[in-house]
Every structure is written in C-alpha cells, then in structure tokens.
C-alpha cells in the first residue's frame, strides 16, 4: 500500500493510468449527456430539469472532494506523508471549481423555478461556506512560503471545515429550506423516475472519474513543481544534477517528494 504512495511509483502509475481514465471519463459523460437529452421533460419543470444533470454531480463532487482532502489532511498530520499534502493541495482548486459550478447552475435552475437567483437558506448558505473554505485553503497555501508549515496549517483548517459536510447534507432535513430534500440517496430509495435516474447516475459516475483524472494530473504537477524547486536549490548551491529522464520519469527511491 505504502509503496503506491511513493511519488516515483505514483508518477509511473499515473502516466499509464491517465490515458485510460481520460478515455473512460469522456465515454461515461458522453453516455450520461446522451441519456440526459433523451430523458423526458419534467411534468412541472419542463426542460429546465436538464440543469439537474450538471448541478447534482457538481454538488456531489463538491462534498466528495472535501472528504478526500480531509483524508489527505489526516495523512499529513498523522503520517506526515509528503504525497498526502500534495494530494490535499492539488484537490482544493478542483473542489472550488466544482463547488462554483454547483452554485452557479443552482442559481440558474433556481431563477426560473423559484423565482429568485439566491436565498440565504441553510443549504445554499452552507454550500457557499464550503466554497469560501476552498478559497481560504488555496490562499493559505499561497501565503505561507514554508511548504511543510503550509501543509500542516491547511490540514488543520481542512479538518475543522469537515463539520460543514453534515450540515450541507442534512440542512434540508434540519431546517425549513427552499431547496428540495434528498431524492436519490435516501432511505426508501430514489424518488426520481428511472428514465431520469440512470442518466443522472451515469453523469455522477463520469464526473467522479473526471475528478480522479484531474486530481491525478494536479498531484503529478505538484510533484514536478517540488522537484523543480529542489533543482533550483541545487543550482544555487552548485550541486551536481540527476538525469533529466530521472526527473521526469523517476524510478529511484531517492526521488521522493521533499518539502
């Protein structure tokens, strides 16, 4: 298990896995979109329900990505594994992107259905707070020069922010909100018709694979960025160089990520 968390092994596996993951992601999203546009219009919402196929997967991902970051934060604080804080740092902009999509598509869905772009109800506000936490974490990494300190501070903030996840999930049950209650993952089964449910689940699966693909790409970039920093230090100190091939496609145990 730990051997897979070695940055060198990670880079090698990623270069093999990314083409397959990208292809599978494109196929799943294409199938999901085909199903979404073939699905019937909602009897109340008409064709506006098509926004659901973007909004719901984005909402699901905004929480899943934060969960992944929280797990990575534990890896940083408990095991001090360098790949854990690379994974955490790489996930934050992607999480912010999907949360932004969730907020904007929700607003574009809300205006014609609710008659308003925005209300300060529990669900919408807690998702906005999640978006601000993502931005805060990105800013934290940008403002602290010491990568190790930044990783630990971000890990603590990430774990504190986890309290927001159950608030988002259960806000529609705990408070009286304009947002509808859960209609897919609920006790008693989904309330959505099968003709709409399968494209929605396919889109959710495709979006999850999209996140995995983007996350692997972002972690790979983070590892290379740290190697570049290390090389710049070597250059400044006049130390000899490792080979270029080793830098880009490393195999040795000493090629691990360092702060």
């Amino acid at each position: 298990m730990w051997s897979f968390a070695n940055p060198s092994v990670f880079l090698r596996l990623t270069s093999r896995a990314l083409p397959w993951l990208s292809g599978l992601t494109v196929v799943l999203i294409a199938v999901g979109l085909y199903g979404a546009f073939r699905s019937p219009a909602d009897y109340q919402q008409g064709e506006t329900v098509k926004i659901m196929y973007l909004h719901v997967p984005a909402a699901w991902l905004s929480m899943l990505i934060y969960g992944v970051m929280a797990a990575a934060a534990l890896g940083t604080l408990v095991w001090r594994h360098p790949l854990a804080d690379a994974a955490q740092k790489a996930a934050a902009p992607i999480g912010a992107g999907f949360t932004f999509i969730c907020l904007v598509t929700g607003s574009l869905w809300g205006k014609p259905m609710w008659g308003t772009w925005w209300v300060w109800d529990a669900r919408l506000t807690s998702v906005l707070v999640l978006f601000l936490i993502y931005l805060g974490l990105i800013a934290l990494w940008q403002t602290i020069d010491d990568a190790g300190k930044a990783a630990r501070a971000a890990a603590v903030l990430t774990l504190v922010g986890v309290v927001n996840l159950p608030i988002i999930k259960f806000s529609v049950d705990w408070w009286n909100t304009l947002h509808q209650p859960a209609s897919v993952f609920r006790i008693g089964g989904p309330t959505i018709d099968a003709s709409m449910l399968w494209p929605l689940l396919t889109m959710a699966l495709g979006s999850t694979l999209l996140f995995v693909t983007l996350h692997l790409m972002a972690i790979r970039n983070e590892i290379l960025r740290r190697r570049l920093r290390r090389m710049a230090l070597r250059l400044a100190m006049g130390e000899p160089k490792p080979s270029v091939a080793r830098l880009l496609e490393p195999t040795g145990p000493d090629a691990a990520v360092q702060h």
Binding site: G97, I101, L214, M217, M231, A232, L235, E239, K241, V244
Partner: peptide, 29 residues
Amino acid sequence: VVGGMVISLLLEHRRLKADLTQISAKLPA
C-alpha cells in the same frame, strides 16, 4: 470551468517539464 481546469493543468505540466529540462541543463553533471 471544466475546460479551463483541464487546459490549465495540461499547460502547467508542459511548462514544468520544460523548466525541469532547462534547469537540469544548467546544473553541472
């Protein structure tokens, strides 16, 4: 948004690889 994330990650990867090659050439063997 998704296209922007994909393109920025790909461009950054290309830039990092080029920078690593460049800086490696400057280092003494």
